[in-house]
Design a protein around this nucleic acid. Structure first.
Ligand SMILES: [Mn+2]
Ligand SMILES: [Mn+2]
Ligand SMILES: [Mn+2]
Ligand SMILES: [Mn+2]
Lengths: 220, 220
DNA sequence: ATATATTTTTAGATTTGTCTAAAATTTAGT
DNA sequence: ACTAAATTTTAGACAAATCTAAAAATATAT
């Protein structure tokens, strides 16, 4: 049985290991979890003992198959609860993360599978992130950052890279949500700011915004 | 902010103090929480510091107004989650308690009030126990134990005193649930066993069963 | 290649909640 | 009222998860 804290470490290591092939560093984990590197080292030893990660001093960590599955189940719970909060309880997408951080640790396989059924087996959470199924399978949809798209392209918003409350509220303010169609009207060479056409209006967004919005190309 | 453990102690003290006017004893708490008396003493000191209970050495404890409200909010959460699990996710009434024991500690007032609305403000949980509203008010319904009812009376089952899985499964086996009409056909003087008429059949139950079923008299 | 900076680990302390064993207090029985 | 039994508290220990400060290992930069 995993503790609350062990689960948070596993999930964090899982997320950090996605973007790279090398082992995840102690400091990277410490930064994400907002703890000290020495605390990370302690926990790493424990997870290594439990065979959930592979660890060699000073070389960072990688998840074992068992560790990956455990991490995926936590991500599954987190994202299913987020769907529940938005779809059933009427939360806004910027309000669900912290509550889901708690709910993801509730230990009942039956609960999560019944919740999954109740929500009609969603494949994505309110931020466009994929929800692992009961077997841990993740259906990856192809998506790109808006910042990688060329001028004169029509795209649809399918997710956010940053799901902080601040960023999501920015999107709300500009009426951008998942499913919103965006037309790239202009890209300013000087600062890579994008002028984009939305449903009714045209706005200019910074590169920072563009590189946190996942989109899918509709037409060139 | 209360810890998981502090919340469990408060809830336990609340339940134990309902049936009596004196302070709740250390041993009674230890038995309910399944811990040692010395651990209870330690926690009691902490809750006393926090002004959630009143404590005098060797004299047991009583909740303060603040402690009562905190306890009620935990009970509220526990019972609302139980309703959710049964009504929305299709759990049986004997499967919900342990999961609700975890869910009751999720810290979000917004969550619980939205859940309350989603469930359409239920006043009772799946075991017939009252659900405190957001202000902590509890709507008491009058009910008696079946063991207190006279012969030749028609009653309706409105709750259970023991909500253990074993007892609830016994009731399921005999097709007794909340709302079931029960007619008291005979009471055996020798062992106080009851012969009761149900919808389609007649069964005999022990005194132990009768003293764990809450009923409301329909007619004499 | 060697010095410097950064990262990671160790050593030792702290907090929370628990335990056992022993001492203190209260309760009950005669 | 006195003694025995039960309850409650204290003292000291321990495991989990964290921290600070110092030491060890690795990475970087000239
Ligand atoms: Mn989230
Ligand atoms: Mn999400
Ligand atoms: Mn319950
Ligand atoms: Mn209940």
């Amino acid at each position: 049985m995993l503790t609350y804290s062990e689960e948070n470490y596993l999930k964090t290591i899982f997320h950090l290991s996605l973007g790279q092939k090398k082992g995840v560093s102690t400091n990277a984990i410490a930064a994400k979890i907002e703890t000290k590197a020495s605390s990370v080292t302690d926990m790493i030893k424990k997870l290594n003992e439990k065979q959930l990660i592979k660890y060699q001093k000073y070389q960072g960590v990688t998840l074992t198959a068992e560790g990956i599955m455990a991490a995926k189940m936590i991500v599954r719970k987190h994202r299913l609860w987020e769907v529940f909060l938005v779809e059933k309880l009427g939360f806004n997408w910027d309000e669900v993360h912290d509550v889901a951080e708690e709910l993801e640790h509730i230990k009942s396989e039956k609960l999560i599978n019944k919740l999954d059924a109740f929500l009609e087996y969603p494949t994505q959470d309110p931020h466009g992130d994929p929800i692992p199924n009961a077997k841990g399978e993740i259906k990856l949809v192809d998506k790109q950052l808006l910042s990688e798209i060329d001028i004169n392209t029509k795209v649809v918003c399918v997710g956010v890279k940053d799901s902080s409350s601040e960023f999501l509220q920015y999107l709300d303010k500009h009426k951008i949500s998942l499913g919103t169609v965006i037309e790239i009207v202009d890209i300013e060479p000087f600062d890579q700011s994008y002028t984009i056409g939305l449903h009714q209006h045209t706005i200019t967004i910074t590169k920072k915004i563009a590189s946190n919005l996942y989109v899918k190309v509709i037409s060139a």
